[in-house]
């Protein structure tokens, strides 16, 4: 024995971790922050969301807004995917750590330990509505797939840069949406005897495979939906061009 410190409790301070535990929640906080600021700006901008029949995912489907409604049509749509992501089991982990610091990282003390109720009382008890937001997200996703079809086939086969970006976005959004934990439960996770329903078991296995990479799908699709809107905005504003790669008329 060489050295002794003063008498103490075995666990004092925030943590004894000496690695970069703050990095992951920090990156999440910055990443979400950037997306939320951009999406809010775009929803208020109410412009540059159409290129002919092509429409930005933030404004699709194109809904008429009543005269008394002070905001853009994006507000009538975005609450659905936003609710789906806000109640998503992966995002819950991410933002509870990054913004609520509850806890910021494993083995690191939570911020504010008084009155913790978890997800048992308002507002967090509403996380239990995740499956309803899943149904709404599937509806919105179906519309986005229709938009891809329109972008590619409205004037014969017309594969442009924007239509390919929209296609990639829909693939990523589908991987994220259908790999969701609520869907995993709905397709068969609630069963105890898979041998009674082999079809459901196969579907559950497929969704489970998607679900294993749910975090990756979540981030890639968040980026892709933002990037798709950004590219459409730039083309609509005349900043970027939208070259046609394979034209058939």
């Amino acid at each position: 024995m060489n050295e002794t410190t003063a008498a103490t409790h075995p666990h004092t301070g925030m943590t004894t971790r000496n690695d970069s535990w703050w990095l992951a929640p920090g990156l999440v906080a910055v990443g979400f922050g950037i997306f939320v600021i951009y999406a809010t700006f775009r929803a208020f901008e109410n412009n540059f969301y159409e290129i002919g029949p092509i429409i930005s995912p933030f404004y699709s489907p194109k809904l008429p807004t009543p005269s008394w409604f002070p905001f853009s049509a994006a507000f009538l749509i975005l609450w659905m995917p936003a609710g789906f992501r806000a109640t998503c089991y992966y995002y819950r982990k991410a933002y509870y750590r990054a913004y609520f610091m509850s806890p910021p990282a494993c083995g690191v003390k939570v911020w504010g330990s008084q009155g913790y109720c978890g997800e048992r009382s308002f507002p967090f008890v509403l996380q239990n509505l995740h499956r309803y937001f899943f149904y709404l997200a599937v509806l919105v996703l179906g519309i986005l797939w229709y938009d891809v079809f329109i972008a590619m086939f409205s004037e014969g086969l017309n594969i442009s840069v924007v239509s390919l970006i929209m296609l990639a976005n829909c693939i990523l959004l589908s991987g994220y949406t259908f790999g969701c934990h609520a869907n995993r439960h709905i397709v068969g996770g609630g069963m105890n005897k898979f041998s009674d329903a082999p079809g459901k078991f196969k579907l559950w296995e497929f969704v489970t495979h998607l679900n294993e990479h749910h975090m990756g799908w979540a981030w890639c699709s968040l980026f892709s939906v933002g990037f798709t809107d950004f590219y459409i905005r730039q083309v609509a504003a005349g900043v970027f061009s939208n070259p046609t790669l394979i034209p058939f008329h």
């Binding site: 089991y89 819950r92 982990k93 509870y96 750590r97 509850s102 806890p103 494993c106 083995g107 913790y116 109720c117 978890g118 997800e119 048992r120 967090f124 008890v125």
Partner: peptide, 15 residues
């Protein structure tokens, strides 16, 4: 068991 107390921050899985 109070499953609603869990806010699924996944530290249990990590360790």
């Amino acid at each position: 068991a109070g499953i609603g107390m869990c806010n699924i921050t996944k530290c249990c899985t990590e360790v």
